[in-house]
């Protein structure tokens, strides 16, 4: 989806992590996630809020790591071909 030279994944990941911090540790929790109702699958919204962020942070970490690994592999390949063709 993103090229290995693109800086966008870095910005997207950093932005998402910052928003997550505001929403689960900072005042965002008190503003948007504090209410007990509605109950979702029997759980109060205040707990569901944290669980949704947990899923979201996990997915973003997975995607970011996938992209980081892709960059690493490409760099290693470039270095290897550079060694072969001086």
């Amino acid at each position: 989806m993103f090229g290995t030279r693109s800086k966008l994944p870095h910005y997207l990941f950093a932005g998402h992590a910052l928003v997550a911090a505001v929403c689960v540790v900072g005042p965002g929790y008190l503003w948007w996630g504090s209410n007990a109702r509605p109950f979702v699958l029997g759980l109060p919204w205040s707990l569901v809020w944290a669980i949704l962020w947990l899923i979201s942070v996990f997915v973003s970490l997975l995607l970011y790591e996938h992209w980081t690994r892709k960059c690493e592999v490409e760099r290693e390949r470039a270095e290897a071909s550079g060694k072969r063709d001086p």
Partner: peptide, 9 residues
Amino acid sequence: FYVLGYGLV
């Protein structure tokens, strides 16, 4: 729930 929050980030 603050425990889940700080541990997560």
